[in-house]
Design a protein around this nucleic acid. Structure first.
Lengths: 329, 329
DNA sequence: CTGAAAGCGCTTACAG
DNA sequence: CTGAAAGCGCTTACAG
């Protein structure tokens, strides 16, 4: 009976038996009780998604695709706070030690809780995002270097010679910074130390205002992510400079609001949604066979979307663009 | 033993017994098995949050506070798709009929799935957001009328006499529209039919461009929510008008990005986070004693935050502002 | 006050 | 091929 419900492929049963069982299921609108199933199978059908800040639209995109992918594989996504988990409080005991979830997706590489995240990832089947490769851990990230390179090259190609980078804490930002620097070095141009912004628009706003207020003479900025770019955008305006005439701006990541800024934000799109879906797929595989290793999601490739926050300088050289290029509105 | 773990208050036990049990719990790092508990108690400790669009930053704020509140009461939040649920597919059968969650938070009033939401809300202890009062259902919403009134009055007080409303499908927007219209009628000014935008920035952008392109001579716009205001913002710019000189703009809701627009967006803040937390509290109560009725969260009150997208017209009257008033940056 | 036993609804190994 | 029985880990009513 149970084997009919669950579609056991090794089962052979008379068609009439199967039919009568299926009729009963339909008539009673029978659904297996999830708790009983979970107890018996030692599987909850739950995946945890641990985030630092649900409000970041970049995460929202990942979460949405992750949720859809999970639902397709009959898993539900439960929302967790990285901070709560990392502080080994009630939540840690219940979720991680208590095995409330079958697997965990954890954001890392943001400069907080890195050690705790690693420990948790070893206790439960997990995929860690954004972090550098870690022995014993399954990590997954985007092609940060390529994206930062495309952003920086776009500015170089537009004729800029003095380009800054607005960053944030953690290894994700550091990888992007290195590629920014490398692109400038390659072009024989000077690079500047990263401006210490943050992962929120407010922090990057303050950092940008301070940086420009100190008399810095850059003509272009690369921002670590779209929220930071938004803060840089308002910061440039607050500092009394014009975009793109005085200071051009490119965002790594292309969140949905980029096109609605004034002027619209030139950005390098990265496949965040795909990363979320792929991570769910991976963590479900890990439940049955644990595996470590690093995946850098290079496809679909980062893609430059040119909008109004950058333009070719009158005096600038005009080369081909290195990345795929697109433009909207 | 079990009663010690769960802190049964009626239990009287020798202190030494209690101590030795607690020592054992600590030593073994014992956590009750959630699935077994769920099976025995017919409670999963799970609350579902059904959303149409996780990407809307307005929801993100609610979800975040709801998650924190749920965690404090030892519940986890699982993320659900309203569309999937409403279409009575696999998810409906599993989550609603299968009682995978103890309670449900559902967004409604957005013009889709209203009937299905109502049906689901009757099958599972639920709190429905944004909807009008429904018999047999626990509904909860913000003070839409007051917020729209404050927004509209702000523009009237600044001297505007031709004010439009950019709306979206559903009853939430209709309530705001009614208050917009009432405020204008009160002031003896003409009102216009709602401009049919949508809940996304892209839709409202298109609607605004079309509206302004048709030669409409309004000098100010009230937008149903911050995402719509963002679309209106970029739409006004795309139509070649200046903000606030040609067209002023006020948003109902004050999402985090409002202050970073250029010019920054004047907005009426509403307690969305509080609504999320309160809803979790309510739905947990409903699990033990079902109740219907409507709650309109009027406190904390809507609050006008004046930024650069509005200004007092040179020729305009200058009255006091009707709502609490604040301004930042 | 304390310990043993029953049962929540499922799945799977086993006997018929 | 089919049906009955055991057991997942808890909680609670019950016997001692």
């Amino acid at each position: 009976m149970s084997r009919i419900v669950n579609g056991d492929p090794t089962l052979r049963v008379r068609p009439e038996t199967r039919a009568s069982v299926e009729a009963a299921i339909d008539m009673l609108n029978y659904t297996p009780h999830p708790s009983a199933r979970a107890l018996r199978n030692a599987r909850t059908g739950l995946l945890g998604f641990a985030l630092n800040d649900v409000n970041d639209p970049i995460y929202a995109e990942m979460v949405e695709r992750a949720q859809v992918e999970a639902a397709q594989q009959n898993f539900s996504l439960i929302l967790l706070n990285t901070a709560e988990l990392a502080q080994r409080g009630e939540a840690f005991r219940e979720i991680v030690l208590g095995r409330r979830v079958d697997g965990l997706l954890i954001q890392s590489g943001l400069g907080s809780w890195e050690d705790a995240v690693q420990e948790i990832a070893r206790a439960v089947p997990s995929v860690v995002f954004g972090a550098d490769s870690l022995p014993g851990t399954r990590t997954m990230r985007l092609d940060d270097a390529r994206a930062a390179q495309i952003a920086t090259r776009h500015l170089i190609d537009a004729g800029h010679t003095s380009i800054a980078y607005v960053g944030a804490p953690g290894t994700s930002s550091e990888r992007r910074f290195s590629a920014y620097r490398a692109a400038l070095v390659d072009a024989g141009l000077p690079w500047l130390p990263a401006i210490d912004g943050g992962w929120t628009a407010d922090e990057s706003h303050e950092a940008t205002v301070r940086f420009l207020g100190s008399g810095a003479q850059v003509t272009a900025i690369v921002a670590v992510t779209t929220t930071a770019a938004l803060g840089a955008h308002s910061g440039i305006v607050a500092a009394g400079r014009r975009i793109p005439d005085d200071v051009a701006l490119v965002s790594i990541n292309d969140a949905w609001f980029a096109r609605h800024l004034n002027p619209p934000l030139t950005a390098v799109w990265l496949p965040l949604g795909d990363l979320g879906a792929l991570a769910v797929h991976e963590v479900i595989e890990q439940i049955t066979e644990p595996r470590d290793g690093e995946t850098v999601l290079t496809e679909p490739a980062p893609r430059l979307v040119v909008r109004g926050s950058t333009k070719t300088l009158a005096t600038g050289r005009k080369d081909d663009d290195p990345g795929g290029q697109a433009s909207d509105r």
